[in-house]
Amino acid sequence: MPSESPENPSLAAVSRWRRMLLIRRFEETVARLLAERRLGGTTHLCIGQEAVAVGVCGSMERRDQVVSNHRGHGHLLAKGGDPARLLAELAGRVAGYCRGKGGSQHVAVPDIGFMGSNGITGGGIPIALGLALAAKRAKDDRVVVSMFGDGACATGNFHECLNMAALWRVPLIFCCENNLYAMSHPAEAGLSAGSPTRWAASYGDMPVETVDGNDVEAVRGAYLRLAEKVRQGGGPAFLEALTYRLCGHSRSDARLYRTREEENTWKERDPIRRSGEALRDQGLGEQLEAMKESVEEEIAAAVAHAMASPPGDEALARGGLFAPEETP
C-alpha cells in the first residue's frame, strides 16, 4: 500500500484515488467474471462506496485491525490486500487468502490487520468488540474498526456492543456505511431513530460524527479525528458515512425498490469522479492517467494469476477443522 508522504499531500491523495479506482475495477471485473460464469457463488459489490473503504481502512495503521462485513472486498483492498489473492479466493483457488474455503464473505488476513469479512449481518460487531478488549489488555495503542451497514444497526449485536464498548471504554471505532438500504429495506423504514448516530450518541459519551461518505478526503479526516481520540484511551467512537451502492445488493438484484432517478442523483456524486475532478483542478491530470493504466495492468495480472491457480483437493476440503493433534 502506498504510504502517506506528509511533504507531498497531493501525491497521497492521488494514491487514494488510485486505490478507489482499483476497488472499482476489481468489483466490475468480478461482476463480469460472474456474468461469464467464470466465477460462482454470491458476491456483494461495493461499487459507489469506495471512498468509505479507502477513507477509513486506507487511513488505518498496519497494526490497527478491522472487522469487515459481507460487502468487504473494498475494505480488504484498502487495508493493503492483494487483488490477485482476493480474486483467487472468490474463484475457489489455492492461491486465495483462505485457499478457497472462505469465498467472498469470509476472508481473513491478520498479517495486515484484516480480521475477517463476515457473512452474518451484524455478526462482526461482537468480534470487533472482543479484539478491542484484547487491544486494551495488550496496552499497545492499537485501535479496532468495525465496518457494517445501516441494516446491521437494527440487530441486537449493534445495541449490545455499543453498550458494552461504552461501559468497557475499549479502543473501538464503529463505522456505519449507511448506503440507505438493507438489501431492499429502506433505512428510514428500518431504523426508528432515523439515523444510527442518534442511537450511538445515547451510549455513554461516545464521540459521533456523520460524514459525506462519497468524499474520500472528508471520510479520512473524520476517521483520523476519531482514531486520535480513541487511541488516547477515550473509549469507543462512532462514524457514520453516508453513501450509496451504485450496483445491486448481490448479483440477482433487479433493484425494484428504488428509482432510476435516485440512482442517477447518486451517480452524480460518484466518489471516484469527484476526487478525480478535484485532483485534475490541482493539475494532477497526467498522474491520474498514468494511474489508470497501472490499475488496468494490476487487475489483468490479478485475473491471470487467480485463474491460473488450481482449485483445492478433497484433502483440503476435509481437513483443517481443528488444530493438528499435539503428540503427548
Binding site: I125, P126, I127, G130, L133, A138, E160
Partner: peptide, 16 residues
C-alpha cells in the same frame, strides 16, 4: 447480552 459477549469472547480469542 449473551450473543454479543460470546461473540466478543470469539474476537478476544482470535486476538490472542
Amino acid at each position: 447480552s449473551e450473543n454479543s459477549f460470546v461473540g466478543a469472547a470469539v474476537g478476544a480469542a482470535a486476538g490472542g
